[in-house]
Amino acid sequence: MTTARIAAPSAATTRYSRVPKGQGPGRRVLPYLFLGALIIYFLIPIWWLVVASTKNVGGLFNGSAGALWFDKDFAFGSNLADLFTYNDGIYLQWLGNSLGYAFAGGFGATILAVLAGYGFAKFRFRGRRVFFSVLLGSVMVPLTALVIPTFVLLSELNLTDTIWAVILPSLLNPFGVYLMQVYATDAVPDELLEAARIDGAGEFRTFLQVAFPLMRPAFVTVLLLSIVGTWNNYFLPLVMLQNTRLFPITVGIGLWEGQASANNGGGQSLWGLIIIGSLVSVVPLVIAFLSLQKYWQGGLSIGSLK
Protein backbone atom coordinates (compact mmCIF):
# COMPACT_ATOMS: atom_id res chain seq x y z
CA MET A 1 0.00 0.00 0.00
CA THR A 2 2.69 2.45 1.00
CA THR A 3 4.74 1.73 -2.05
CA ALA A 4 1.74 2.37 -4.23
CA ARG A 5 1.56 5.79 -2.65
CA ILE A 6 5.18 6.49 -3.41
CA ALA A 7 4.99 5.04 -6.87
CA ALA A 8 1.92 6.81 -8.12
CA PRO A 9 3.19 10.41 -8.20
CA SER A 10 6.05 9.53 -10.49
CA ALA A 11 3.59 7.76 -12.68
CA ALA A 12 1.27 10.70 -12.67
CA THR A 13 4.01 12.94 -14.01
CA THR A 14 4.90 10.29 -16.55
CA ARG A 15 1.44 10.49 -17.89
CA TYR A 16 1.36 13.98 -19.19
CA SER A 17 4.99 14.75 -19.57
CA ARG A 18 5.37 11.50 -21.51
CA VAL A 19 8.77 10.70 -20.07
CA PRO A 20 8.51 7.04 -19.17
CA LYS A 21 12.15 6.71 -18.16
CA GLY A 22 13.98 8.23 -15.26
CA GLN A 23 12.11 6.63 -12.41
CA GLY A 24 13.92 3.80 -10.76
CA PRO A 25 12.06 0.50 -11.08
CA GLY A 26 12.65 -0.09 -7.39
CA ARG A 27 10.01 2.44 -6.45
CA ARG A 28 7.39 0.53 -8.31
CA VAL A 29 8.04 -2.94 -7.00
CA LEU A 30 4.70 -3.39 -5.28
CA PRO A 31 2.45 -2.41 -8.20
CA TYR A 32 4.55 -4.64 -10.41
CA LEU A 33 4.31 -7.58 -8.04
CA PHE A 34 0.55 -6.99 -7.82
CA LEU A 35 0.20 -7.01 -11.61
CA GLY A 36 2.57 -9.95 -11.98
CA ALA A 37 0.55 -12.05 -9.54
CA LEU A 38 -2.64 -11.12 -11.37
CA ILE A 39 -1.19 -12.08 -14.75
CA ILE A 40 -0.28 -15.50 -13.36
CA TYR A 41 -3.76 -15.93 -11.90
CA PHE A 42 -5.51 -14.93 -15.11
CA LEU A 43 -3.26 -17.08 -17.29
CA ILE A 44 -3.13 -20.27 -15.20
CA PRO A 45 -6.27 -21.88 -16.62
CA ILE A 46 -5.16 -21.09 -20.16
CA TRP A 47 -1.67 -22.38 -19.44
CA TRP A 48 -3.17 -25.58 -18.05
CA LEU A 49 -5.27 -25.92 -21.20
CA VAL A 50 -2.25 -25.48 -23.45
CA VAL A 51 -0.23 -28.03 -21.47
CA ALA A 52 -3.05 -30.55 -21.21
CA SER A 53 -3.79 -30.34 -24.92
CA THR A 54 -0.32 -31.73 -25.66
CA LYS A 55 -0.85 -34.87 -23.58
CA ASN A 56 -2.24 -38.19 -24.67
CA VAL A 57 -4.83 -39.96 -22.55
CA GLY A 58 -2.21 -41.73 -20.48
CA GLY A 59 -0.37 -38.52 -19.75
CA LEU A 60 -3.58 -36.76 -18.86
CA PHE A 61 -4.61 -39.26 -16.23
CA ASN A 62 -1.34 -40.63 -14.89
CA GLY A 63 1.26 -38.25 -16.26
CA SER A 64 4.54 -37.99 -14.43
CA ALA A 65 5.15 -34.29 -15.04
CA GLY A 66 2.16 -33.01 -13.09
CA ALA A 67 -0.82 -31.01 -14.20
CA LEU A 68 1.02 -27.81 -15.04
CA TRP A 69 3.93 -29.14 -17.08
CA PHE A 70 4.39 -31.05 -20.34
CA ASP A 71 4.59 -34.81 -20.41
CA LYS A 72 7.36 -36.65 -22.22
CA ASP A 73 4.98 -37.70 -24.99
CA PHE A 74 4.07 -34.67 -27.06
CA ALA A 75 0.70 -35.55 -28.58
CA PHE A 76 -0.57 -32.15 -29.69
CA GLY A 77 -0.62 -33.06 -33.38
CA SER A 78 -2.43 -36.33 -32.96
CA ASN A 79 -4.90 -34.72 -30.53
CA LEU A 80 -5.64 -32.08 -33.12
CA ALA A 81 -6.12 -34.73 -35.80
CA ASP A 82 -8.48 -36.63 -33.49
CA LEU A 83 -10.45 -33.48 -32.80
CA PHE A 84 -11.08 -32.70 -36.44
CA THR A 85 -11.92 -36.27 -37.45
CA TYR A 86 -14.02 -37.41 -34.48
CA ASN A 87 -17.60 -38.15 -35.46
CA ASP A 88 -17.08 -37.09 -39.11
CA GLY A 89 -15.51 -33.80 -38.13
CA ILE A 90 -18.48 -32.55 -36.16
CA TYR A 91 -16.18 -30.17 -34.31
CA LEU A 92 -15.48 -28.20 -37.48
CA GLN A 93 -19.19 -28.05 -38.13
CA TRP A 94 -19.72 -26.59 -34.63
CA LEU A 95 -16.96 -24.07 -35.16
CA GLY A 96 -18.55 -23.00 -38.43
CA ASN A 97 -21.97 -22.77 -36.80
CA SER A 98 -20.58 -20.58 -34.02
CA LEU A 99 -18.99 -18.28 -36.59
CA GLY A 100 -22.20 -18.13 -38.60
CA TYR A 101 -24.41 -17.38 -35.59
CA ALA A 102 -21.98 -14.82 -34.20
CA PHE A 103 -21.63 -12.92 -37.47
CA ALA A 104 -25.29 -13.07 -38.49
CA GLY A 105 -26.52 -12.19 -35.00
CA GLY A 106 -23.77 -9.65 -34.36
CA PHE A 107 -24.08 -7.76 -37.64
CA GLY A 108 -27.86 -7.89 -37.56
CA ALA A 109 -28.10 -6.60 -34.01
CA THR A 110 -25.58 -3.85 -34.69
CA ILE A 111 -27.27 -2.64 -37.87
CA LEU A 112 -30.62 -2.49 -36.07
CA ALA A 113 -28.96 -0.68 -33.17
CA VAL A 114 -27.22 1.94 -35.29
CA LEU A 115 -30.44 2.73 -37.17
CA ALA A 116 -32.55 2.91 -34.02
CA GLY A 117 -29.94 4.84 -32.04
CA TYR A 118 -29.70 7.42 -34.83
CA GLY A 119 -33.49 7.61 -35.02
CA PHE A 120 -33.82 8.20 -31.29
CA ALA A 121 -31.03 10.76 -31.24
CA LYS A 122 -31.84 12.86 -34.29
CA PHE A 123 -35.58 12.80 -34.87
CA ARG A 124 -38.46 14.23 -32.87
CA PHE A 125 -41.62 12.19 -33.18
CA ARG A 126 -44.60 11.12 -31.19
CA GLY A 127 -43.99 8.19 -28.86
CA ARG A 128 -40.24 8.66 -28.84
CA ARG A 129 -39.85 9.39 -25.15
CA VAL A 130 -42.15 6.57 -24.10
CA PHE A 131 -40.42 4.03 -26.32
CA PHE A 132 -36.98 5.12 -25.20
CA SER A 133 -37.95 4.80 -21.53
CA VAL A 134 -39.37 1.34 -22.16
CA LEU A 135 -36.14 0.45 -23.94
CA LEU A 136 -34.02 1.60 -21.00
CA GLY A 137 -36.20 -0.39 -18.63
CA SER A 138 -35.86 -3.45 -20.84
CA VAL A 139 -32.08 -3.41 -20.40
CA MET A 140 -32.90 -4.71 -16.94
CA VAL A 141 -35.11 -7.58 -18.06
CA PRO A 142 -33.08 -10.72 -17.43
CA LEU A 143 -32.53 -12.03 -20.95
CA THR A 144 -32.30 -15.63 -19.84
CA ALA A 145 -35.76 -15.27 -18.34
CA LEU A 146 -36.91 -14.58 -21.91
CA VAL A 147 -35.38 -17.75 -23.31
CA ILE A 148 -37.95 -20.24 -22.06
CA PRO A 149 -41.00 -18.22 -23.21
CA THR A 150 -39.26 -17.49 -26.52
CA PHE A 151 -38.73 -21.22 -26.94
CA VAL A 152 -42.41 -21.94 -26.37
CA LEU A 153 -43.38 -19.15 -28.75
CA LEU A 154 -41.02 -20.32 -31.50
CA SER A 155 -42.03 -23.94 -31.04
CA GLU A 156 -45.61 -22.96 -31.87
CA LEU A 157 -44.26 -21.50 -35.11
CA ASN A 158 -42.18 -24.66 -35.70
CA LEU A 159 -39.03 -22.58 -35.71
CA THR A 160 -37.18 -24.30 -32.89
CA ASP A 161 -34.26 -26.52 -33.85
CA THR A 162 -33.45 -24.28 -36.82
CA ILE A 163 -30.69 -21.71 -37.17
CA TRP A 164 -33.31 -18.96 -36.98
CA ALA A 165 -34.13 -19.90 -33.40
CA VAL A 166 -30.60 -18.84 -32.48
CA ILE A 167 -30.06 -15.93 -34.87
CA LEU A 168 -33.36 -14.06 -34.58
CA PRO A 169 -33.44 -13.68 -30.75
CA SER A 170 -29.78 -12.60 -30.90
CA LEU A 171 -30.84 -9.53 -32.89
CA LEU A 172 -32.28 -8.01 -29.73
CA ASN A 173 -29.72 -5.68 -28.16
CA PRO A 174 -31.39 -2.80 -26.27
CA PHE A 175 -28.13 -1.78 -24.63
CA GLY A 176 -26.54 -1.42 -28.06
CA VAL A 177 -29.33 0.96 -29.07
CA TYR A 178 -28.73 2.97 -25.91
CA LEU A 179 -24.99 3.20 -26.65
CA MET A 180 -25.68 4.30 -30.23
CA GLN A 181 -28.17 6.92 -29.07
CA VAL A 182 -25.69 8.39 -26.60
CA TYR A 183 -22.95 8.37 -29.18
CA ALA A 184 -25.02 9.83 -32.03
CA THR A 185 -26.31 12.65 -29.82
CA ASP A 186 -22.76 13.89 -29.29
CA ALA A 187 -20.91 12.82 -32.40
CA VAL A 188 -23.33 13.82 -35.14
CA PRO A 189 -23.93 17.60 -35.23
CA ASP A 190 -27.44 18.69 -36.18
CA GLU A 191 -26.03 21.47 -38.38
CA LEU A 192 -24.29 18.93 -40.56
CA LEU A 193 -27.51 16.99 -41.09
CA GLU A 194 -29.37 20.22 -41.80
CA ALA A 195 -26.76 21.18 -44.37
CA ALA A 196 -27.05 17.82 -46.08
CA ARG A 197 -30.83 18.18 -46.23
CA ILE A 198 -30.62 21.68 -47.66
CA ASP A 199 -28.31 20.28 -50.31
CA GLY A 200 -31.17 18.00 -51.21
CA ALA A 201 -30.00 14.70 -49.77
CA GLY A 202 -32.78 12.34 -48.72
CA GLU A 203 -33.00 11.21 -45.11
CA PHE A 204 -31.54 7.81 -45.76
CA ARG A 205 -28.74 9.16 -47.87
CA THR A 206 -27.97 11.73 -45.17
CA PHE A 207 -27.70 8.90 -42.71
CA LEU A 208 -25.49 6.72 -44.88
CA GLN A 209 -23.12 9.41 -46.12
CA VAL A 210 -23.03 11.93 -43.28
CA ALA A 211 -24.08 10.36 -40.00
CA PHE A 212 -22.86 6.81 -40.37
CA PRO A 213 -19.17 7.62 -40.95
CA LEU A 214 -19.24 9.69 -37.74
CA MET A 215 -20.78 6.80 -35.81
CA ARG A 216 -18.27 4.23 -36.97
CA PRO A 217 -16.35 3.90 -33.65
CA ALA A 218 -19.58 3.12 -31.80
CA PHE A 219 -20.56 0.74 -34.60
CA VAL A 220 -17.34 -1.26 -34.24
CA THR A 221 -17.68 -1.43 -30.46
CA VAL A 222 -21.29 -2.58 -30.48
CA LEU A 223 -20.44 -5.04 -33.25
CA LEU A 224 -17.63 -6.58 -31.22
CA LEU A 225 -19.75 -6.77 -28.08
CA SER A 226 -22.64 -8.35 -29.99
CA ILE A 227 -20.42 -10.88 -31.76
CA VAL A 228 -18.78 -11.89 -28.49
CA GLY A 229 -22.18 -12.08 -26.80
CA THR A 230 -23.54 -14.41 -29.48
CA TRP A 231 -20.36 -16.45 -29.74
CA ASN A 232 -20.32 -17.03 -25.97
CA ASN A 233 -24.04 -17.63 -25.63
CA TYR A 234 -24.92 -20.98 -24.13
CA PHE A 235 -28.42 -20.86 -22.68
CA LEU A 236 -30.23 -19.81 -25.87
CA PRO A 237 -28.79 -22.43 -28.26
CA LEU A 238 -28.92 -25.07 -25.52
CA VAL A 239 -32.65 -24.54 -25.20
CA MET A 240 -33.43 -24.04 -28.89
CA LEU A 241 -31.47 -26.81 -30.60
CA GLN A 242 -31.76 -30.59 -30.55
CA ASN A 243 -29.97 -31.45 -33.77
CA THR A 244 -26.29 -31.80 -32.86
CA ARG A 245 -25.32 -30.73 -36.40
CA LEU A 246 -26.69 -27.24 -35.63
CA PHE A 247 -24.91 -26.80 -32.29
CA PRO A 248 -22.49 -23.95 -31.75
CA ILE A 249 -19.19 -24.78 -30.13
CA THR A 250 -20.31 -23.94 -26.59
CA VAL A 251 -23.25 -26.33 -26.62
CA GLY A 252 -21.22 -28.95 -28.50
CA ILE A 253 -18.47 -29.04 -25.91
CA GLY A 254 -21.12 -29.09 -23.18
CA LEU A 255 -22.57 -32.16 -24.91
CA TRP A 256 -19.18 -33.90 -24.92
CA GLU A 257 -18.74 -33.07 -21.26
CA GLY A 258 -22.06 -34.76 -20.52
CA GLN A 259 -21.09 -37.85 -22.52
CA ALA A 260 -17.65 -38.03 -20.96
CA SER A 261 -18.93 -37.88 -17.39
CA ALA A 262 -21.79 -40.26 -18.14
CA ASN A 263 -19.47 -43.17 -18.93
CA ASN A 264 -16.68 -42.71 -16.45
CA GLY A 265 -13.60 -44.50 -17.68
CA GLY A 266 -14.92 -45.24 -21.15
CA GLY A 267 -15.06 -41.51 -21.76
CA GLN A 268 -11.36 -40.99 -21.23
CA SER A 269 -10.55 -40.16 -24.83
CA LEU A 270 -13.46 -37.75 -24.92
CA TRP A 271 -11.90 -35.72 -22.10
CA GLY A 272 -8.85 -35.27 -24.32
CA LEU A 273 -11.08 -34.01 -27.14
CA ILE A 274 -12.84 -31.61 -24.76
CA ILE A 275 -9.53 -30.14 -23.70
CA ILE A 276 -8.11 -29.59 -27.16
CA GLY A 277 -11.53 -28.53 -28.42
CA SER A 278 -11.73 -25.87 -25.72
CA LEU A 279 -8.29 -24.58 -26.65
CA VAL A 280 -9.08 -24.34 -30.35
CA SER A 281 -12.41 -22.63 -29.68
CA VAL A 282 -10.73 -19.88 -27.69
CA VAL A 283 -8.23 -19.00 -30.42
CA PRO A 284 -10.45 -17.03 -32.88
CA LEU A 285 -11.77 -14.56 -30.31
CA VAL A 286 -8.38 -14.07 -28.69
CA ILE A 287 -6.90 -13.23 -32.08
CA ALA A 288 -9.80 -10.91 -32.85
CA PHE A 289 -9.39 -9.06 -29.58
CA LEU A 290 -5.65 -8.72 -29.82
CA SER A 291 -5.78 -7.43 -33.38
CA LEU A 292 -8.74 -5.08 -32.89
CA GLN A 293 -7.52 -3.53 -29.62
CA LYS A 294 -7.60 0.08 -30.68
CA TYR A 295 -11.27 -0.17 -31.66
CA TRP A 296 -12.80 -1.75 -28.58
CA GLN A 297 -10.62 -0.07 -25.97
CA GLY A 298 -11.75 3.39 -26.97
CA GLY A 299 -15.33 2.41 -27.57
CA LEU A 300 -15.97 0.80 -24.20
CA SER A 301 -16.04 4.17 -22.50
CA ILE A 302 -19.03 5.36 -24.53
CA GLY A 303 -21.72 4.20 -22.18
CA SER A 304 -19.89 4.83 -18.96
CA LEU A 305 -18.80 8.44 -19.26
CA LYS A 306 -22.24 9.87 -19.54
Partner: peptide, 10 residues
Protein backbone atom coordinates in the same frame (compact mmCIF):
# COMPACT_ATOMS: atom_id res chain seq x y z
CA UNK B 1 -8.74 -8.82 -20.10
CA UNK B 2 -8.12 -12.07 -21.99
CA UNK B 3 -10.66 -14.23 -20.06
CA UNK B 4 -13.46 -12.06 -21.48
CA UNK B 5 -12.67 -13.57 -24.88
CA UNK B 6 -13.10 -17.07 -23.42
CA UNK B 7 -16.70 -18.30 -23.54
CA UNK B 8 -18.18 -18.85 -20.07
CA UNK B 9 -18.68 -22.52 -20.92
CA UNK B 10 -14.98 -22.99 -21.63
Amino acid sequence: FLPYAVPAVI
